[in-house]
Simulated scan of single mutants.
Amino acid sequence: MASKVYKTAAEALEGLTFDGMTVMAGGFGLCGIPENLIAALRDSGVKDITAISNNAGVDGFGLGLLLATRQIKKMISSYVGENKEFERQYLSGELELEFNPQGTLAERCRAGGAGIPGFYTKTGVGTIIADGKEHREFNGETYILETGLVSDLSIVKAEKADTQGNLIFNKTARNFNPPMAMAGKVTVAEVEEIVPTGDLDPDEIHLPGVFVQRIVKCTFEKRIEQRTTRKREAH
């Protein structure tokens, strides 16, 4: 069996990128984002990406790197309020945006990974989110049809992996990573630690390795998205 372990993020993406591809990127804010794989995507020069992510990173970090180099053509996301370059590109018509309620986006990714082509939800009914979508009544309530999402490539970040790609995530860094990994035609995970197969307690594994094709051990900057402090109290 071919090894799933790669030496660098660039090597882990080799042969997987092409112009016009759809990429899912896990994370929430800057928590649990695949920062090394994002940087490797930038360095690959791939263009016209449709990026599916909860948010667009911040200026100069996370998906903000790909926005700065104009490699993202369209964003499918939920929250984009921390990135000035995103705002500038969107308002100037340089960037397409498919905006989703956060729960809807999470379920679209989960549905895609489960092989579910679509589902009905009440979220967005009566708003511009519902424009152009199928409406249907269930028990006297109106619902709209949302489609499942899949990607050509999913990039995720985990705390620990074994050599077969079974993953464990660190607390809230779990966020969008597991459903996006499941929804990728190919999934690459960057991790803090790789252990031999059999070292992980099966009951502690969050994502089975069947969903992960490549893994790479990386180092991380782990930025804080918004640092809030108070003055030290005198004693």
Rank of each mutant, 00 (worst) to 15 (best):
A2Y: 01
K7H: 13
T8S: 11
A9V: 14
E11R: 05
A12Q: 15
L13I: 11
G15F: 07
L16T: 05
F18T: 15
G20R: 14
M21C: 15
V23H: 03
A25G: 07
G26N: 05
G27A: 08
F28W: 08
G29N: 09
L30M: 05
C31I: 11
I33F: 00
I33C: 01
P34A: 13
A40D: 00
A40M: 12
S44I: 10
V46S: 05
K47F: 02
D48P: 03
T50A: 10
I52G: 00
I52E: 00
N55F: 03
G57A: 07
D59T: 07
F61E: 00
G62W: 03
L66C: 13
A68D: 10
K74T: 13
I76G: 02
I76M: 11
S77G: 14
S78V: 07
G81L: 15
E82P: 03
F86N: 15
R88N: 04
Y90T: 15
S92A: 08
E94P: 14
E96R: 08
L97S: 04
E98R: 13
F99D: 15
G103F: 06
R108M: 15
C109L: 07
A111H: 07
A111D: 02
G115S: 11
F119L: 09
T123W: 06
A130C: 08
D131T: 05
G132H: 11
K133S: 06
G140F: 10
G140D: 10
L145C: 05
L145V: 08
G148R: 12
G148A: 06
S151H: 10
S151C: 07
D152H: 13
L153T: 09
S154H: 06
S154L: 14
V156P: 01
V156Y: 00
E159K: 13
K160Y: 03
A161L: 14
G165M: 14
G165R: 04
N166F: 00
I168M: 14
I168D: 01
K171Y: 09
T172G: 05
F176L: 10
M182N: 00
G184A: 12
T187P: 07
T187D: 02
V188H: 02
V188M: 08
A189L: 12
V191A: 05
V191S: 07
P196A: 09
D201G: 04
D203S: 14
E204A: 15
I205W: 03
L207A: 02
V212I: 04
V212A: 01
V212D: 00
R214Q: 04
K217I: 06
E221Y: 00
R223Y: 02
I224Y: 00
R230S: 13
K231T: 15
A234P: 04
H235V: 12
H235M: 13
